[in-house]
Design a protein around this nucleic acid. Structure first.
Lengths: 123, 123
DNA sequence: GAAACATGGTTTCCGTTAGATACTAAGGAG
DNA sequence: CTCCTTAGTATCTAACGGAAACCATGTTTC
């Protein structure tokens, strides 16, 4: 047991959570669901490049963690809606900070990579 | 090209960055380096459970992205120090938000998982 | 003089995972 | 009768991560 949770400890449960949060697709899904309730194929279309399997798996994990809700409507064909829980909404804000950081600092990173690769090529 | 960067676009470079940031080990390393300059084995000891290979690879990627610096001192045995760059420091703040979220919301997530698993077992 | 220890890695192997693709069920449109 | 939609599951393969061994180098120990 961890008296106080500590992500640096190997067996601390926070590690399990960090494993889940530190996932590109989970962050994108949470970030996107912050805009409102969405259906499976809607998410699949908007989050370009995600496969059906990974989307399905990631949604299931997020539901298990209590971050999103999954509501099935018995229409034909069946309709399934995903929405953030209050807990998920707090995390989505943090996730948004990460995606914003990425969008804001892209240029600096691309420049650093170019400089690094150029220095490496000279050797 | 993305006129404005957009993480939802498949080929946008922000996706590459998000891939890198959304990595458990990278987040922990950045978060830990925020406390100050550190050497290889120091990081390895503090971040419990990380393997040498993964630590080495992750440090290399972070250096290439311009987030950390790597300084070699020709002592015996050789000393290598890692430190955050100014860019890395801004990201470390965001990373800290994630690890803090994990530590703060552990209980809620564990409870959600238990409830989910209990409901699933009944079926 | 060989053996052990410290540093900061690289190499090798193996198992899990992710991604691509194809398929399912169940009704509606053409 | 065939194709379209919905929300997934099944299957196969390629890539990735972790464990452990190995490397170079110099100092200390036996």
């Amino acid at each position: 047991m961890c008296p106080a949770y500590d992500v640096y400890e190997d067996r601390c449960p926070t590690r399990l959570v960090l494993d889940r949060l530190a996932d590109k697709w989970a962050l994108l899904i949470l970030d996107h669901l912050a805009e409102g309730t969405m259906r499976f194929n809607h998410l699949r279309r908007d989050i370009k490049g995600i496969s059906q399997k990974v989307l399905s798996q990631t949604l299931k994990r997020l539901e298990r963690d209590g971050l999103i809700t999954r509501t099935v409507y018995p229409t034909v064909p069946v309709t399934v809606e995903y929405a953030l829980t209050p807990l998920g909404r707090t995390l989505a804000q943090t996730a948004a900070a990460l995606t914003h950081w990425a969008e804001s600092n892209m240029d600096a990173i691309l420049a650093a990579q170019a400089a690094y690769d150029a220095a490496g090529a000279e050797r």
